[in-house]
Amino acid sequence: MDIAMELIDSMLVKFKSEGKWTLQAIAQLSEEDITWSPNAESNSIANLVAHIHGCVHSRIETIFFDIPDTRDRDQEFERGLQMSKEEAYDRIKKAFDTIIQYLEHLRSKPELVMSQPFLNRPPLTYSQVNNETTVLNLMIAMVREVHYHTGQIIYAAKVRKGQLEWQYD
């Protein structure tokens, strides 16, 4: 197996697992837990879900579905952001489904891993990558970004609920 396929397969395993645990955590919470924040400077689960969804939109949906970037990053971090438990669950599920769908697309076309999909697009906003980035660099950045914020979601869920119940399959 070549290195591109190994990386894609590793990322697929990572994102499928991360999505599973995040969805299980959110499913165990109350409506109030979704918008709770430990203090005025901390993000709620609603903020973190909105942010992950925004990252997926601006970094993956724009290239995979060829749609304009309509992300409002500042809104993702508004204090008191309202989001129902169902909306949080659906938005994080959609984000992970999109990431997995894109990785499966890359699996069928591994030559795209070194492509530069943003070269002929408007300048990227709110991104740790620039228009010259490769798909590989973009996806590595997504692994870091998503893992960091799903860890925060699971930690906040544990703070609110205490012991979480996990389903292993």
Rank of each mutant, 00 (worst) to 15 (best):
S17F: 13
D2Q: 15
Q82S: 15
R71W: 06
C55H: 05
E145H: 15
F64M: 07
E145T: 01
I153N: 02
G162N: 12
K93D: 06
L23N: 09
L138I: 01
Q116T: 11
L48A: 04
T134H: 04
Y155I: 02
D66G: 02
M83G: 12
L103Y: 01
I34L: 03
T70C: 08
N137V: 05
I67K: 13
P122G: 02
K20F: 11
E87W: 00
T125G: 07
I52N: 00
M139G: 03
R59I: 01
T133H: 03
D69K: 03
V143K: 02
I52D: 01
V13L: 11
A27C: 10
D9A: 11
T62F: 05
N120T: 13
R121V: 09
S42T: 04
A25L: 01
E111S: 12
M139T: 02
I92H: 02
H57V: 07
N43I: 03
V146I: 09
F15Y: 08
Q116D: 00
L106K: 01
D169V: 05
K93N: 09
V56H: 04
A157F: 04
Y89V: 01
N39M: 08
I100M: 07
I52V: 09
T22I: 07
E61L: 11
N137R: 11
D2F: 11
S37I: 00
T134R: 09
G151K: 13
E104S: 14
S58M: 12
K14A: 13
A46E: 06
L112G: 01
E87D: 15
I3G: 00
N137T: 14
I154W: 01
T22G: 04
T98P: 04
K158M: 13
R107E: 06
Y102N: 06
Q116S: 03
Q75H: 14
T98R: 12
E76N: 10
D2P: 12
L12K: 12
K85V: 12
